[in-house]
Amino acid sequence: MAAYFRRTGPTAFDPSPDVGGAWNTAEQHVAPTFGLLTHLVESDRLARGREDLAPTRLSFDVWGPYPLARMDTTVRVLRPGRGVELVEAAVSCGGRQVATLRAWLSASGDTSALAAGIPAPVPGPQDTPAWDPTTDWPGGFVASIEVRRELAEPGRGRVWARTDVPLLQDEEVGPLARTAGLLDVANGMTVRADPRRVAFPNLDLTAHLFRVPVGGWLGLDTSVTFGPAGAGLTSAVLHDTTGPFGLLAQSLVVRPLG
């Protein structure tokens, strides 16, 4: 099976047509790139022997649109430490930086006796109606995912998403990176306005995690807000099939079309 990306060098990757964007099908959808950046951070963590650390925050920034072309990557530790580290991964395309991830990693430990305040679970994918996301969006990436959705109203709903497309060709990828490669669908699966009439791309995505997801289905209990001055916010409680595992937020630029 074809993957979203194929490694062509130690730090270089080529995208497949399945990475095609939703706002512009000649550009890349950022969702798989977020998964790739997370995989790079995870691979670097393991290569440095830091199995004792787990990601607690993934903060992505999108520097601009980028084509379906070769991508070059870097990873560096910005803040080393015994119990806490800050690691940055970056992707460039066409000689221009296009996306970055800054990930906080912290030492793992058993706090099960203190666990509390966890959001309520939501009905699982088996209890959520199937929905075709190509109803609202074009592009290879959107066509490559399976979605189940139940809307309460425009901009408010519950979504489950998964994909059978591997993130990387012939390379093992962990459940966190696979999940991170789906996070960006939060902004497009419970739209507040028709994307053919209103543009609302996100500039960033930050996920705060209180445990590592198991992979497979990603659940999003989502709310989309449009403000009065051209800005918006998509927020979601993150779930896997065992329960909630974190929170997500995306800053939106809201622009009427036409």
Rank of each mutant, 00 (worst) to 15 (best):
R7D: 09
G9Q: 02
P10S: 07
A12M: 11
D14W: 02
S16Y: 08
G21N: 06
N24R: 09
T25W: 02
E27R: 00
H29N: 15
V30A: 12
A31C: 12
A31P: 08
A31G: 06
F34T: 15
G35W: 02
G35S: 09
L36M: 08
H39S: 11
E42M: 11
S43Y: 00
R45K: 09
G49Q: 08
P55W: 01
L68C: 05
L78D: 09
G81R: 04
V84A: 12
E85F: 00
S92D: 12
G95Q: 04
R96A: 13
L101H: 04
R102M: 11
W104P: 10
W104V: 13
G117A: 09
P121M: 01
Q126N: 12
T128F: 01
D132Q: 06
T134K: 04
W137E: 02
W137A: 07
F141K: 05
S144E: 01
P154W: 07
P154I: 11
D164Q: 14
D164H: 14
P166M: 14
P166D: 14
L168G: 12
E171I: 15
G174V: 00
P175M: 06
A177R: 03
R178H: 12
T179M: 00
A186D: 08
A186I: 10
T190W: 00
P195V: 10
V198R: 10
V198F: 03
A199C: 11
P201R: 09
P201F: 03
L203W: 08
V212M: 08
G215W: 00
G219L: 04
D221C: 04
V224F: 09
A231K: 00
G232D: 11
T241D: 04
G246E: 00
L248Q: 14
V253H: 10
V254T: 14
R255F: 10
P256Y: 05
